[in-house]
């Protein structure tokens, strides 16, 4: 039996309806004092749970699809796992190097060249410059941007931009990969290339959790499916089970 890569127990995220933290000074001071005294703050009644009581376990090397309609809480769940957002309840443990791709090309600046953005994006994903340098040729070859590498990305076509962004992401070696609808970009030929790259990662034992609405793509990569609705994890089983429910709910 393989080890556990991701263990999530009763994870939840509550947002206040106005979408912000305390606004007024005295509230903030109160909160800061409470924080210093390590007291739990009372929950605001005007709030909702974007994710509630989610528990599941992902074993090493598993490829799991996370499905659900818009607003079901998939992205918030991934954001909590990637430490971008702090949960309101519960806990999770992730073993191994984790890379979260909640978007492609994080931190890309239009005024900078493709090359500069590659290194910046790498740095933000936690990849050392020296290692990025050894991979640069491969990333450029994969992205097919060729001679445009030293041109500011503001002059790139949107396809080129996404291809470069995906290529960086695809060349980050990691144990646990979280992806939020960044699975396949570009034209159909490039999408096929992206998928091949992903298949290879899965074959090599990378643990993957993918949020996507492309059921056909998920079917090629994943064996297991999680289905979420209104913040709750409703199905944790075979991929077909989750995709059936997803099709049923979106058809209605």
């Amino acid at each position: 039996m393989k080890g556990i890569a991701i263990e999530v127990s009763r994870l939840g995220k509550q947002y206040s309806m106005d979408g912000r933290g305390p606004k007024r000074a005295h509230e903030a001071i109160e909160q800061a004092v409470r924080g210093l005294m390590r007291r739990k703050e009372p929950k605001d009644p005007g709030s909702f749970w974007a994710v509630k009581d989610c528990s599941f376990v992902v074993r090493q090397g598993e490829a799991v699809a996370l499905l659900g309609r818009n607003g079901a809480g998939k992205s918030v769940l991934l954001k909590m796992l990637s430490r971008v957002v702090k949960p309101s309840s519960g806990e999770a443990v992730i073993r191994g190097r984790m890379t979260a791709l909640l978007e492609l090309g994080s931190g890309f600046h239009p005024e900078l060249t493709g090359r500069e953005n590659v290194f910046f994006n790498g740095a933000i994903l936690g990849v050392r410059r020296a290692e990025m340098e050894t991979k640069l040729d491969e990333i450029v070859a994969f992205s097919e941007v060729g001679d445009f590498l030293d041109m500011p990305v503001k002059h790139y076509s949107s396809g080129m931009y996404m291809r470069l962004a995906f290529s960086i992401a695809a060349h980050v070696e990691t144990d646990v990969l979280l992806m939020d609808e960044v699975l396949a970009v570009g034209d159909s030929a490039f999408q096929e290339k992206c998928l091949n790259r992903m298949r290879r990662a899965v074959r090599q034992g990378t643990t993957v959790v993918i949020v996507s609405h492309e059921v056909s793509v998920l079917a090629e990569l994943c064996t297991r499916g999680l289905y979420m609705d209104h913040g709750k994890l409703l199905i944790d089983g075979a991929l077909a089970e989750a995709t059936d429910r997803y099709r049923k709910d979106t058809a209605a």
Binding site: K40, E91, A92, E173, T174
Partner: peptide, 17 residues
């Protein structure tokens, strides 16, 4: 492949800490 330099065990919790 490039090696990502993140910690080997990440613990996430709602606890203020």
């Amino acid at each position: 492949m490039v090696r990502a330099a993140s910690a080997s065990v990440v613990r996430i919790s709602a606890e203020r800490r």
